[in-house]
């Protein structure tokens, strides 16, 4: 990868002036990822915050060609674009090397877009799918998705006499993509830009489908100050809530391991977010313990996968 200073001098591919919130993780991820895209790209975006805020007609913040068609089909749409490219390239009607990337939130990826994503990666299209995972349907006003962590308040996993937020654990999407046996799967976080850009470059240059799952703090939905987003992403990684790893042709590599005894309790990270505030009232001790146990189990599994695969 080129030196960060040199990358920083490249022209922006997502311009300022878009209407995303201050502190939103999505444009940070988009800018880091697009900054290492090796050539002109076509970007497909699922309906959601990123789409509505960057393409308010007649304006567009995208310097590359961009298409939005609907919510559940960013992967299917880009598969059509990529196929058109292969057809026209083969016929000599296009000569340039071009790159294809889809962005979707967790609602548009883990839930409603899962089928289109599974189909597109199975067909082997040469594209990168990036999920910016903020852990709920933030664009419609904080409804739970299958990426919402256990215990989190959302408007459809509310807190009440009978319920302390979301009752279920998250879907492990990166593992679902690994199970598709695609060439490259990775997780990333905006706090570690070098790691994210490195992975994006690999994703762009690896032939065939690649998948990046990026944690994307959402000040509105997480109930956090907008200047804390990058710090919260970092702590999510340090607590192993969001492990950084990559799977290249089936081979696991964990990119960050907390030093012995330095893995921070997930409750420390949760305490800083309003969406978990109810869990720190008396009576929820067991639930907090269960959440920590789950994260520990998933982390141990990942260590074993790295060791064995």
């Amino acid at each position: 990868m080129a030196k960060p200073k040199e990358i920083a001098e490249r022209p922006e591919r997502l311009t300022g002036g878009h209407r995303l919130c201050a502190g939103c993780g999505a444009p940070i991820a988009v800018r880091q990822i697009m900054s290492v895209c090796p050539g002109p790209a076509v970007v497909s975006v699922a309906t959601g915050c990123l789409e509505v805020s960057t393409t308010i007609y007649p304006y567009s913040a995208w310097r590359d060609s961009m298409i939005h068609s609907a919510f559940e089909n960013a992967a299917a749409t880009i598969s059509g674009v990529e196929t058109a490219y292969r057809s026209l390239h083969k016929q000599g009607k296009i000569r340039e090397d071009m790159y294809f990337v889809a962005f979707g939130g967790d609602g548009g990826t883990y839930d409603i877009g899962l089928q289109a994503l599974s189909g597109a990666v199975e067909r082997g299209h040469n594209f990168v799918y990036v999920c910016y995972d903020n852990g709920a349907y933030m664009n419609t006003g904080f409804q739970r998705s299958s990426a919402t962590p256990c215990g989190a308040w959302t408007t459809t996993s509310p807190v009440g006499k009978e319920a302390a937020g979301k009752q279920q654990n998250r879907k492990d999407l990166a593992q679902i993509l690994v199970a598709h046996d695609i060439p490259y799967v990775a997780t990333a976080s905006p706090h570690n830009f070098k790691d994210m850009m490195n992975k994006a470059e690999k994703a762009f240059t690896t032939p065939g489908p690649a998948f990046l799952n990026v944690i994307s703090p959402c000040p509105r939905g997480w109930r956090t100050p907008s200047d804390q987003s990058v710090a919260l992403a970092k702590e999510a990684v340090q607590s192993c809530y969001w492990p950084l790893y990559e799977v290249e042709y089936g081979k696991y590599k964990i990119n960050y391991k907390p030093r012995e005894g330095k893995k921070t309790p997930v409750a420390d990270w949760m305490k800083k977010q309003g969406r978990f505030a109810h869990l720190f009232k008396p009576g929820n001790e067991q639930l907090l313990e269960d959440i920590q146990d789950y994260i520990d189990r998933k982390w141990e599994e990942l260590l074993k996968k790295e060791e064995c695969l």
Binding site: V52, T55, Y57, Y59, M66, H68, S69
Partner: peptide
């Protein structure tokens, strides 16, 4: 480059 399917 063009943007197709903008928010309108």
């Amino acid at each position: 480059p063009v943007t197709v399917g903008a928010f309108d």
